[in-house]
Design a protein around this nucleic acid. Structure first.
Lengths: 197, 197
DNA sequence: CAAGTTAAAAAACATCCGTTTGACTTTAAT
DNA sequence: ATTAAAGTCAAACGGATGTTTTTTAACTTG
């Protein structure tokens, strides 16, 4: 990516800010008005930015410019609460969403859960955390998973030994679980925590 | 918010998806093309959605519709690493960013740090986590803060007793810190963790 | 000095786009 | 049967928007 001139940097910055504020790209004339420039001058700047790879044009659409590394977020439904100590599940209606960068979700089928309990505290998963789970994923020993054991869900570490699945808490005060009726729902891919107050 | 008709729901959904994919709102004609409708019909749907509070129009701008609960994200620079065991700071150039919902940052001045060490593990803060810190904030006993102690930074719990500041690790194997030279940089407001592999 | 780059302006053109109007059909409720 | 609401269409108007061309000027660089 070539060097940008000062003016080009400013124009690019304006486009960035404008999009962050208004959720749409500015028109050529809106850029011109901000910098008190003519339309043609702005067109030249845009062309320069485009040839340097800092800007993408999508045909002749209105507001049809785009930024190469634009961040994209998609809603992931918070389906309920998962108890990380003993077992508990409360699947509610999905009225709550957490927005995750698509670089993280990568088109995988995901959902989110609120954590209760302390069985995974040594792994840094504490009450109130929101965890994002990717469904139908291959899991390996040591992965943190959400599993259904005899119909109830839990967050645990996954281990498989001689075709037998063990679900371990990282908190040593809880024993490992094993059962003939374990279904792995998905694998932890993300965690967010908000400190309020 | 009144009930939406099936068609109105579909139109709203399309607008939502279109914006997520293209970072811009569709034009009336683009909506019409998708649903194989006339322009006027779409206008009517938009008017209905607007009167029901599910859509906002910004004057007569091209692509000038907006969604009431649109999520907005702003970049927060990851300035370096903070050691949560002993002390350590490496402020690098800000080439790394984490994108945080503006509902969380709320116009506050923020930066982010990568965590190393285990001194805050019982509080759910482990190595590799990215923490978001709000600067210049009033802090209270028990808040988790980033502080400068004799010029080096740390993540600790804040306590003040008789005008003396104590910085405690939640991991009991580290002693509490106190010094005449403690500067509170900011308060933890958010934490994200990505599980890779 | 000559040549190339960057910056800028004005004007004109074609299209894109939001808006409005009037008329028609279907469906559901009264 | 009547009424109302939702849904549809076609057409046209005016302003917004992207595009292109030509001209001018300042600043570097060889």
């Amino acid at each position: 990516m070539k060097e940008l001139t000062d003016k080009q940097k400013k124009v690019l910055q304006f486009i960035n800010d404008f999009h962050a504020d208004n959720a749409m790209m500015p028109t050529v004339r809106e850029i011109a008005a901000y910098f008190k420039l003519s339309i043609g001058s702005v067109q030249q700047h845009l062309k320069a930015l485009q040839s340097k790879g800092c800007l993408i044009k999508r045909g002749s659409l209105s507001r049809g410019i785009d930024l190469p590394n634009r961040q994209n977020f998609s809603p992931v439904a918070v389906l309920g609460t998962v108890h990380a100590g003993t077992f508990l599940e409360q699947v509610e209606d999905a009225n709550d969403y957490v927005y995750i960068n698509t670089n993280v979700t990568r088109n995988r089928k995901c959902f989110a859960l609120k954590v209760k309990g302390d069985s995974m505290e040594p792994s840094g998963i504490v009450e109130g955390d929101t965890i994002v789970v990717s469904q139908g994923e291959r899991v390996y020993n040591g992965d943190i998973v959400v599993a259904l054991v005899d119909g109830e869900s839990a967050v645990k570490m996954f281990y498989k030994e001689r075709d037998r699945i063990f679900l371990k808490s990282s908190n040593p005060k809880y024993p490992a679980i094993t059962s003939d009726n374990i279904e792995i729902v998905g694998k932890l891919i993300y965690l967010v925590r908000e400190y309020k107050g």
